[in-house]
């Protein structure tokens, strides 16, 4: 029984982190129709910046905030300098459809290699800001610690904040408008380029949060060639696809669902099956329900 409850806790916590990454991918997809494979690199860079701030100020919370600001800055820079140039130069031709994919992938490699060049490939470690020892209830230790509580609340808070931003504010309206139809939004006076950059910036912040929260909740080790960040990207992508790649709530639900499924596989089957399960889940969703579990726009082909 306790094992079952603990598995649910583990699933929800890791799911919350996948959700943050999925939110980042969804935001960029909605604003520019690009799946940003560089998101893992941007998150990694932001986490390193966060690590530097921890060394300087000895406060995880301040560092988390500053890392998110840095992540937003990186996102905005990547969009306004890199992606805009790309879209201007590669609008036509046989490669136009795949150029953004290739370019963001190149960026991922570039960020990783430059980071490795700058700080070396040895691990640094980020210690958890609050205890990662599980709560105890009547003699049983739960797999749910203050740190995990923080992670889950951070994800929930971000999701609520973003939902309000998208549905209740003018900025949100213009974000949705430019995603829906850039041409018409432009005619209606929305500065589409700026709004897109804003989407990238929010995504950068969400990705930074994912990186900063994932690192201490795992082993605490951080390195430029970290497999954890590749997996974060892949699981975030799978979570986003489960949610339909369009909706923020879908991204969160997808993240939690994926986290739970993987946690149950990990506990009751085998650790080395985790990845295959995620991959099979992705394929099944794509084949059976490509519009995602939320599935608003049925007409779209995957």
């Amino acid at each position: 029984m306790y094992q079952f409850i603990n598995t649910i806790f583990i699933g929800i916590t890791s799911g919350a982190i996948y959700s943050l990454m999925a939110i980042a991918l969804v935001l960029v997809w909605r604003s520019t129709r690009v799946v940003n494979f560089a998101q893992a690199g941007m998150a990694l860079l932001s986490t390193y910046i966060g690590y530097e701030f921890i060394q300087r100020f000895h406060s995880f919370w301040l560092a988390l905030f500053l890392a998110m600001v840095a992540g937003a800055g990186i996102g905005a820079l990547v969009d306004s300098i890199f992606m805009r140039t790309l879209f201007r130069r590669v609008a036509h031709g046989p490669i136009a459809g795949v150029a953004p994919i290739i370019a963001t992938l190149g960026l991922l490699g570039l960020i990783r290699a430059s980071l490795g060049l700058a700080v070396g490939n040895s691990d640094v470690s980020i210690r958890p800001p609050v205890s990662n020892v599980g709560y105890t209830i009547s003699g049983h230790t739960l797999a749910f610690s203050p740190l995990k509580l923080v992670i889950v609340s951070a994800a929930v808070f971000l999701m609520i904040a973003l939902s309000i931003l998208f549905s209740k504010t003018n900025i949100g309206l213009s974000l949705r408008a430019s995603a829906f139809s850039p041409e018409i939004a432009r005619l209606a006076g929305v500065r589409v380029d700026r709004v897109r950059t804003l989407g990238w910036a929010i995504a950068g912040a969400a990705g930074a949060a994912a990186g900063m929260l994932q690192t201490p909740s795992g082993t605490g080790a951080l390195s430029p060639d970290s497999l954890d960040f590749s997996l974060l990207l892949v699981f975030g992508f799978i979570a986003a696809v489960i949610g339909g790649l369009e909706s923020l709530i879908g991204a969160v639900l997808g993240g939690v669902l994926l986290g739970l499924v993987l946690a149950f596989v990990l506990t009751y089957m085998s650790g080395s099956l985790v990845f295959i399960t995620a991959f099979v889940l992705l394929i099944i969703v794509l084949l059976v329900r490509p519009q995602g579990i939320i599935g608003m726009n049925r007409g779209r082909r995957a």
Partner: peptide, 25 residues
């Protein structure tokens, strides 16, 4: 065949990241 650009890219990326773990299985 049923996937367009980004979906296919993400799926194949997932394969490339995860396949090595099968070698240990």
């Amino acid at each position: 065949a049923r996937l367009s650009g980004p979906y296919l890219a993400g799926t194949t990326l997932a394969l490339a990241v995860g396949l090595p773990s099968i070698a240990n299985q």
